[in-house]
Design a protein around this nucleic acid. Structure first.
Lengths: 230, 230
DNA sequence: TCTATATGTTCTCTTTTAGTTCACCTTTTG
DNA sequence: CAAAAGGTGAACTAAAAGAGAACATATAGA
């Protein structure tokens, strides 16, 4: 899964975070790995992000976060709503009224989904997302956080939260969560072609992958999307 | 995740909250960090809010609240409210449960917005949209339905519902609802250029419109987006 | 209602720190 | 061998941080 250097860097970041609570800068990581240029670090960081081990805020200093660790070691709590989140108690002045009836539901956030990597199983069962009722499908739904830009041309951006309705079949042209070889979960448009199944990204920089139908398993279909701007 | 200063400030706020139950004022934070101006504190607070470590109420004095702490340390309970802590009653919940608490709010759907046409005033006062709490800004919010494709390259598609926080100013680069000549409302990225204001679409087929600042009135800024797939 | 005080927000300017990209080279590995 | 991973250095861009002042807003009391 990881190369030696990537692994080394990941552990260094973890230690720094645990010790000081502050992520290391590229220069510090460069020194820690004994490198002389930080562009190497840059590439390693990209690799770690692509593989779903860390998350970071684009163009922000020291904004790294560890999402999981390779085999064995326990991952730390991800951002967002962990168990220690406390709900605010806004005094409602001109504030909109809380929706106390059945206009919304909470569904579990099962993790992140990226092109070419498994869903992080994110066993945090205490991660939930509130979703407007109307956005749910009929079946059982859960949420995933999108990682990567393989679907940008369909308006699905990195960081978006997608609502997935569990199902094991899909119509041609639907966007689905597909598991390939029981390993890699991806969010793609599905098209069938005889015995083959095509998983089509919405980004010119990525290629359509075609597999034998037996290798692809549909896990759900896209029914909604939430995005927050900061 | 955090820079040294951000981390330092966060811990200071936590300690103050634990000791006195009251959040420190900007001046106190300024002194605690050894600064001579509180504008720096303001920026740090914004960074902490953006990263999801604290929450605050707009224009309220000493209204900070710690949501979580960086790796390791446990978040402290907020002063006044012990009752509204998210209860860890997972396990029995594999089916989505209705959200009967304050995780979502209903905001009015004010109509549709398109490039170059006024918002259809949609005086249906009975149109509401349910929105997850976390997606709201701090101010007064309302929803609009997007019509047209002038923002597709930012992942805002025809038919999407956008959440707008009412405000009359915006920072450079923010996506805003702008009223031109008190007539045409559009959803665009705003950039200032001296006396002029540019409204930039996210679609190669549309042109940036530049107006004298006096002709453009900001009505709100984009804070969230909802999309349903059928 | 007016006003003083405390507090929070914005703005501009400057310096420092940090992240990104690129061209090119070397090492490792399937 | 070829591809992928790793490494270097430099130029460039952007964010963080500090200062100081003007302005906005909330609250309580006259």
């Amino acid at each position: 899964m990881l190369t030696a250097k990537q692994h080394q860097l990941l552990l260094f970041i973890r230690d720094r975070l645990a010790e000081t609570g502050v992520s290391p800068s590229f220069d510090e990581m460069k020194d820690a790995l004994g490198l002389k240029s930080k562009s190497g670090v840059h590439r390693l960081i990209n690799a770690l992000e692509e593989r779903g081990f860390i998350r970071r805020m684009a163009n922000r200093a020291r904004a790294l976060e560890i999402i999981r660790l390779p085999e064995g070691q326990a991952a730390s709590q991800p951002a967002g709503s962990g168990s220690n989140v406390v709900s605010p108690d806004f005094g409602a002045k001109s504030a909109p009224a809380p929706a106390n009836d059945d206009h919304s539901v909470e569904i579990p956030l099962h993790g992140r989904i990226a092109a070419g990597t498994p869903i992080e199983a994110l066993e945090n069962r205490d991660s939930f997302v509130t979703v407007p009722m109307g956005m749910m499908g009929r079946g059982n739904c859960y949420a995933l956080e999108v990682s990567g830009d393989s679907m940008v041309e369909m308006g699905i951006l990195d960081g978006d939260t997608v609502i997935i309705e569990s199902c094991d079949t899909a119509r041609d042209g639907e966007v689905v969560v597909a598991l390939v070889d029981r390993e890699e979960a991806t969010l793609k448009t599905l098209k069938r072609d005889g015995r083959n199944v095509a998983l089509i990204p919405a980004n010119r920089d990525y290629n359509t992958q075609t597999y034998d139908a037996g290798r692809v398993q549909v896990q759900g279909r896209l029914v909604g999307l939430l995005r927050q701007y900061h």
